[in-house]
Design a binder for these strands. Structure first.
Lengths: 187, 187
DNA sequence: CAAACGACTTAACATATGTTAATGCCGCGT
DNA sequence: ACGCGGCATTAACATATGTTAAGTCGTTTG
């Protein structure tokens, strides 16, 4: 799946304007550790990951929680911030060297206004994002760390292959020490 | 604040059609313990609380979590289910004898279609609900039970006055036993 | 090439929570 | 009036987690 496949799937009506849309994306290379968006800032860019990996996270005094990982051929942004022009509750960081395609909010808004027929697709996409967030939080609330780890092994093994364990721990909402204990316990 | 004040505040454009809107509401009395919406069902009604109290909750095998309490002069529903026609992730239950005004989804949709100028207000309202949920979940994730209890005492003392402690515990994401210990510790 | 750094594991300790169970209190209904 | 049930508190116990610290291994870097 490449960028065109992604858009064809997520935004069929928008895809009709692909030539225009395509020209709005600009390429960008960043090194591991680059922050694309800080918590509290309003998102002004949307990214498509050509190669590399990013994480959406939320930090407090005590913890650093990863909400989601993003890899090749995925769109990533703090969508609710990008869409609503609200300060983001999440930070967005590349944890591998990455190649990105970037779409500015200005171009995005221009597309929305120019092609109003895509509006429902965008609304639907944002609503689905919110539902996704809700499900992520439900998992955190209703499952134990062990259960969450087992789910990860079952359903998202690619994350374990690719993401350093201390970030996996933050994804599970526990410390790296605790994750290590869980892994030995389950051996 | 009564129902008209509430609508004037939340939906000024909708309020212009108040006489029509008013006639769509029907009164309903329910006794404590009545479930207005079960988890997994699609919300077909919106409620305005004249008197009494309700809670929005999510149950799993292990826990029963209260996300929010609602009292007099508040609109309550599983908004994301009502708006998106999706199965609700939450149950809605009255935990006191309550008098309600009820608006059906059918009438709600009729209002939306008849007065399209209110659509942005509704979208905004739903987005704000999502942001509210996000903040509730953030609190659960980043604060300790003791901190959450202290926040409650500080910012929502009316809940402690009115809600039985075992429900307060479910609101804090802990067991009644643990809440009781926290309270004695803080004395 | 050696040192430094990052990632991961393991151990030891303190602590808070869940669980289960017993007790007391209060209100409600028969 | 009496008894039952729901609610809250308290105690005892098991357990998982966080914290701190130490140690290993591998890679990067000067």
């Amino acid at each position: 799946m490449d960028l065109t496949d992604y858009f064809a799937q997520q935004f069929p009506a928008l895809m009709a304007h692909w030539p225009t849309l395509k020209s709005k994306f600009t390429a960008k290379k960043v090194s591991a550790g680059t922050t694309l968006l800080s918590e509290g800032d309003v998102a002004t860019h949307l990214y498509f990951i050509i190669s590399g990996a990013a994480r959406l996270s939320h930090s407090s005094a005590e913890r650093d929680i990863t909400l989601q990982f993003f890899f090749e051929n995925q769109i990533v942004a703090s969508f609710e911030s990008f869409y609503l022009d609200q300060p983001s509750g999440f930070a967005l960081t590349c944890f591998e060297d990455s190649e990105l395609l970037v779409l500015t909010k200005t171009d995005f808004d221009w597309l929305r206004q120019t092609y109003p027929e895509v509006e429902p697709e965008i609304t639907r996409f944002v609503c689905e994002r919110f539902i996704t967030y809700r499900n992520i939080f439900f998992n955190q609330l209703e499952q134990s760390p062990v259960e969450r780890y087992q789910n990860l092994v079952e359903n998202e093994p690619e994350i374990l292959d690719r993401v350093p364990l201390h970030l996996v721990a933050s994804y599970l909402g526990i410390t790296p020490v605790s994750l290590s204990r869980i892994r030995t316990r389950l051996k």
